[in-house]
Structure formats: structure tokens, C-alpha cells
Design a protein around this nucleic acid. Structure first.
Lengths: 154, 154
DNA sequence: ACTTTACCTAAACTTAACTTGAGGTTTTAG
DNA sequence: CTAAAACCTCAAGTTAAGTTTAGGTAAAGT
């Protein structure tokens, strides 16, 4: 089987996204293509994997910027090898796992609160700045430092 | 201790969000306030819990619309009781858990792929429409139905 | 009292992530 | 060979989630 090359429409159909979205992703440097004689985009099928990752990321609130960071692990001058994907996957997994940990903490705490009826806020992961989602750079804190005792919320 | 009532500035400082964001949330029906004689907003401190939930939701890509849905479990004509919060929490937890499940599947699959080196796509949760994030209404599929064998991606 | 700080509304601006539209070219199917 | 379908670029529009600005009122400090 010869090396497949796909048109933008075919990629769009197969990936379940709009052609315009592909143009957009390309412009943002998330995917790449070359042009044929008639100036039309041509893709290698591995672009589908990138798109799948982009779409999965978005469902869980990971931005295109973050995805782009993860993608820097992939070469853009050649088709990624299995090894390349594996390296990239490690970064991607780290991102996912940080999200999972954060969500788990939110969920677990909630269970605890429902159980005991306290609905405490000072013990809540929503409050604790140390426990923030890893790698979120910003100093953003859900309930900030100046919050003293918020135990009297109810 | 008398029933506390807070100005918008105080709520903002304590919750770590901008006053403008509170105006915005109120406009969207996510929080409520009443006015004093001078037309200034007054809040009950329990608004902090709503804000904490809003902020946590956003960190994991849950939209204000979804949060609003969860909040419909809370009464808006009186201060929520512990019972009200517990009911709301159940909906909130369901949302979180669906997210966790989805992420977990992405992460686990990735680990499997790295281990075996296959990086298969047809077995991937990115492909499988049945396994989608629960409660996402739309028929959106990451890689859509028409995708036949994508096994030849690399 | 008076002045600074906090608040009010309404409208415009911002960023992310796209989509839509306009006007023109290339491919493909009959 | 021709006509429809797919593609191209560039610009403007859209939605979510806010922020900023402008012009004015209320509350608080001294």
C-alpha cells in the first residue's frame, strides 16, 4: 500500500471536524500539510491522531495552547515514529493525570461532605492553594489567601 | 452572630474573583443578590460556595451552563440548607465522575499503547462513540461513524 | 463637610476557538 | 468538455466568559 495522502475534506470527514477547523488548526500550528500543484492541502493520515488528541483535550477543558505544548514533542519535518508518539504521550498523560487528580479530590471531598453533613469549606480542596492543578502556572487561587475562616458559610 | 450580609467588593475579595465577574454571574443567574437602599448589591455568604464551585468547574472545562444546571437543585428564594447542598452535590459529583471516567479511560489507554507500542486507533476511547463522556447531549463524536479502519495511521 | 473609595449601569472591547461569507480556482464525475 | 463539487484566501461574524471604560451615585473615613 502506497503512502496515503488525503485532502482536507477527507480528513475532515474522517475525523468528524469541519474543514474550517482544520484550516484553523493548521494556522495555529497544531497540524501540518503540504500543497499539491493546484495549491490544495494534502495531509498524511497521521494527522488524525493529532486531531483525536485535540478533540479529547477540548472535552476536558485543555486548551489548544496546552495541546500545542504537548505536540512540541513530535517532529514536524517527518512523520512521527512510534517512539515519537510515546514521548509525546508521556506529556499528554501527565496533563491528563493532573486533571484526574484534581477532579478526584473534588469528588472525594464532596462525598465526605455529604456523608458528614458539614459541607466545610476550610478543609475543602476548593480552598487549598497547595493542592492546585499542577502545571497551571498562574497564581490563581479559587478562594484566595485573604480568606480566613469561611466555616460560617451556612 | 447576626445574619451576615456582604457587599460585592467583599465577596469578590473573599472569593478571589473580580467584581465584574460577580456582576456577570448574577446576570447569568448563577448567583443572587438583593439591593440595599442605595441600590447596592448585598449577598449572603453562602454565595461563596457557589463561586467556589463555579471556579472549580472552570478549571476542568465545565461550562457555566452546566454549572447552572447543577445549581437548579438549589432553592433561590431562601438560603440553601445542608440538605439542599447535598442534593446539588449529587448532581455535581455525577458530572465530576463522568469527567473522571472519561479522563481515566484516555489515560489508561495511552499507557497501554505506550507499553505495547501499537498506538492503535480503532481500540482507542477516542474512537469509541459508546464510551463518550456521559451527559454531553450532542451527538458529537471524536472520530465519527464513517471512520472505518484507521489502523493504518502510522 | 467633604473627599476618597466603593458601587451602579450600559456599552464596548478581549481572547479562544471556530464558522460563515464572498469571490475566485481546481478537481472530478458524467 | 463542461458543470458540479471541493478547494483556496481573507475578512467578518459568533459564543463563552469576562474585563474595561465612561459617566454618575452612595458610603466611609477624617
Amino acid at each position: 500500500m502506497a503512502e496515503a495522502t488525503w485532502s482536507v475534506g477527507k480528513v475532515a470527514a474522517r475525523a468528524g471536524v469541519a474543514v474550517s477547523a482544520l484550516h484553523f488548526y493548521e494556522q495555529k500550528g497544531l497540524i501540518r500539510s503540504w500543497r499539491n500543484q493546484g495549491n490544495q492541502r494534502r495531509f498524511k493520515p497521521d494527522v488524525l491522531r493529532r486531531i483525536a488528541i485535540i478533540k479529547a483535550a477540548q472535552q476536558v477543558g485543555i486548551s489548544l495552547e496546552e495541546v500545542k505544548q504537548v505536540f512540541t514533542a513530535l517532529p514536524d519535518n517527518r512523520t512521527p515514529t512510534t517512539e515519537d508518539w510515546a514521548i509525546m504521550s508521556a506529556g499528554w498523560k501527565a496533563l491528563l493525570d493532573a486533571r484526574i487528580t484534581y477532579l478526584q479530590r473534588l469528588s472525594d471531598h464532596l462525598t465526605g461532605c455529604i456523608g458528614c453533613g458539614c459541607l466545610s469549606m476550610t478543609k475543602c480542596p476548593l480552598y487549598n492553594p497547595e493542592d492546585k492543578l499542577a502545571g497551571q502556572g498562574s497564581g490563581a487561587v479559587i478562594l484566595n489567601q485573604s480568606t480566613q475562616s469561611a466555616e460560617d458559610l451556612l
